[in-house]
Design a protein around this nucleic acid. Structure first.
Lengths: 150, 150
DNA sequence: TCCATTTAGTGGTATATGCCACTTTCTTTG
DNA sequence: CAAAGAAAGTGGCATATACCACTAAATGGA
């Protein structure tokens, strides 16, 4: 009886979400670890890759992440030579981001591991259930909490 | 058109989860902020409260959180006088945790704010949908990734 | 009983993330 | 066009969270 605390679990949507995030994060992290990246880093490299030299603000917006948090998260990746930044030609306030050649190689490596993690997870919960879950999560991510509470 | 990156969103279950967690976390944090606590702290105080002077390991297990992470997270709460620890009578390795009187008052205050957040969120997505989502998240939290991949 | 092993926490280090104050660049206006 | 205001990032600070190496305490044998 190792989980006396679990029955009640929690009615808090936020806590439930965080708990699942920790759990799943550990799994994806473990699976992707052989590449030397964390799952968050793989995700960030991927986002940069498909973003077409995105501006930092665009990445932050896509990931629903604070701009300064993104800046911090980017640092290790820049330090390790996977990512580089450059000023936008038209607006000198804007800083764009791209993968370096090594970054591209590393992303490739990490994506293969990610794919395994993704497959293993979906084999456990079912592809449909996973898709439903992502849809629900994407809905939450799209909510506008500023809208007047009716 | 502020979300050119959203259409594709992500097929990654982990990334989707993290994104939703950031979003919802910001909302709950905002709502609970008047108490001076973060949503994570409110959740932790609550967990301690309902745990009946739980051991650190028990809390960590319930929250699916690394024990050392819990230790770190606990520090500000101890520093601010909301929580205190004491050695277990029978096993001196075990450190138990409880709320201080001020901690209890603060939790009370935070729970009222939490309740508002919870209500507002559930008014937006629907009570049933929220319950379904929590169930799905709890299932994930309960997965055993060590089981042989069949 | 004594040692090898397991269990519970701690501390250090590193990433993840957020807020705020501040600087630099546009943009909008009077 | 100059001044006010908005927009994009940076840096500092604080919490969230993980892993690892280490210590202390309990436990299970031989």
């Amino acid at each position: 009886m190792t989980q006396a605390a679990l029955p009640g679990l929690t009615l808090c949507n936020n806590a439930s979400l965080r708990r699942a995030t920790r759990k799943l994060g550990q799994f994806y992290d473990d699976m992707i670890a052989p590449s030397g990246l964390k799952a968050t880093q793989q995700g960030l490299l991927y986002q940069i890759h498909i973003g077409g030299e995105p501006a930092m603000g665009a990445i932050a917006e896509a990931l629903i992440m604070d701009l300064s948090a993104l800046g911090h998260t980017l640092k290790p990746l820049i330090r390790d030579g996977y990512v580089e930044t450059f000023a936008d030609k038209d607006d000198r306030r804007v800083k764009r981001v791209r993968l370096t050649p090594q970054g591209l190689v590393k992303l490739d490596e990490a994506m293969k591991l990610w794919s395994l993690a993704q497959q293993r997870f979906e084999a456990m919960v079912g592809k449909d259930e996973a898709a439903r879950l992502r849809a629900a999560l994407d809905d939450i991510a799209a909510l506008d909490f500023n809208a007047p509470p009716a």
